[in-house]
Write a protein that binds this DNA or RNA. Sequence first.
DNA 1: CTGAAAGCGCTAACAC
DNA 2: GTGTTAGCGCTTTCAG
Lengths: 342, 342
Amino acid sequence: MTTLEDIARQAGVSHSTVSRALADSPLVNAETKKRIQILASEAGYQVNQVARNLKVRSTKTVGLVVPEVSNPYYPKLVQLIADLVRAAGYSLQLQLSGTDQEVESACLASLREQRVDGILLVSGENGLVAREHVNALVASGVPLVLMGWVEGTEHLDTVTGDDAKGGYALAQHLIGLGHRRIAILGKSPHRGIYDRLYGFKAALKEAGIELPEALQVIAQSDAEVGRGVAHLLALPEPPTAIFAYQDSLAALVIGYLADAGVSVPQQMTVVGFDNLDLASYISPRLTTIGGHIEPLATQFVGLLLERVQKTALRELPQHVVVTPQLVVRKSCAPPRNKREEK
Amino acid sequence: MTTLEDIARQAGVSHSTVSRALADSPLVNAETKKRIQILASEAGYQVNQVARNLKVRSTKTVGLVVPEVSNPYYPKLVQLIADLVRAAGYSLQLQLSGTDQEVESACLASLREQRVDGILLVSGENGLVAREHVNALVASGVPLVLMGWVEGTEHLDTVTGDDAKGGYALAQHLIGLGHRRIAILGKSPHRGIYDRLYGFKAALKEAGIELPEALQVIAQSDAEVGRGVAHLLALPEPPTAIFAYQDSLAALVIGYLADAGVSVPQQMTVVGFDNLDLASYISPRLTTIGGHIEPLATQFVGLLLERVQKTALRELPQHVVVTPQLVVRKSCAPPRNKREEK
DNA sequence: CTGAAAGCGCTAACAC
DNA sequence: GTGTTAGCGCTTTCAG
């Protein structure tokens, strides 16, 4: 691997001159600079960032920890973040924390050892657990911003979507369509997802609509979604609409409904949440809540880079919240009885 | 940031002893070792990997460059790779090369500057373009393995799926079902995807089935897929089956067919390629070609780590090819006329 | 404008 | 067993 020294020798100058020349410093004679630059590029020289980083005490790298990338929500986020980070001239160190809190800790530790300039932490579905780790990190002055709701993080910079508002809008939409018997279906509501249910339920309550236990199904796996759908259909009085509180779940629900010969939206209304790409390529196209991911990503890296770049005054922790929008597509219709009434 | 020196001072020993103790070297007295370890953990000491890397001339990091992560094919791959890499004790440096060859070059350059121990390069859809860069890398001895078909890479380690075989199997399946009028639809076939078409066409030819121009539609965007579907349906003699040579395209096709009131598989058979997760959660569940991604990922990182770890004898370039399987689900049926004949 | 020298934090001979 | 020393390759004073 060629070093500064190597090309310094070739150019007959000292390695510091080469360093300056390659940094395009005005302190070096234009001609020698040119000469050195040419020499370097001919030799295929590339700075050794690890040496450079050691010296300048910065890596121009931000760490991103997300739970996984096989759940389609995250890739969308990662792509946006990656583009923003790159645009700002930083590299991205991606860590997948899985669902395991130990792995999350390990990720954080690794990033710190790597001396990344800042950390973007997306809380897992079970809420963040590596709290001590995070606190230690913050205490040690590493800029960190958190995405997702986690209890007791007022002292941290955070960005979150206003899921409650989204859930509320969704419920209102269904109610407006005439639905009164509405089911909800999804994974057990951990903190990350609790709010969308909260808002949804609030709207139902306001409208005086009951949400009996029988219409609330918890499904942790694909197979359980299938069983849940079967359960709902077998009810003496089945729902006319289902709120699957993640788009991928909604897609699954639509599939199981089709298996049972129930068509969407004619015989059943289904709505999701997040407006992932899949929402627009499944059929019927999904009515959902969206538009939050992009601003979330922007604020996420914006906030971090602000912290990273101004080494000076450390201000109060910021809490950004982004309001999502209702996205109306094709998966909803008035309930059957309503239509017949007309 | 606490350093070895800091805790050496606290422990009243030299920094090298601390270094040894933390590396759990047997060369240091058991008691002092214990004492140092405790001290270090209390102080929240974390090695400075950048200093360490500089010294040991290795980063225990591998670079992964993929075009993007918003196309659902890649996240699946990235997840698998990330898990394998982590399991082997390496970190992952993710770079998104986009569709732009300049960006790809920049990614490669950045990884090299970062002094990653090896590079996993997934060729973009347009085939790899940063050839000079890749050659330079290989010449400079950085282990690199390439995923995806690219011309003139016999001198590189590569892993590829046998897409031709997959395409062939798919066509045979359709033919077996009785289809004779079959359309293909997808992006303009660059090298990365050419083979699946090649195999598909070969099977048609063998069976004496024509594939007129009118049944070959190129669609670069979502909207064009819609137009393509409309075009096919408007044909005097429309196809009875459509091969959309990427799962996400197939999903889109199914959606547009639904818009036109054409149901799958009753009125139209649709098949995809890759068996992404979405293939099993859209409805109808998609018949496709799958099972290649996992072995591809395994071989990909296996090959790289082999190269990275044995600094000794550099063997001949390896070319691994993985054979995919037909995955039969619900999106195919015999063509209408056939069924009526019975 | 350029060179000499120091030092980032660590590991690994090499002494003792 | 432990300390001393010498770098890894780079940036950046500080002198000239």
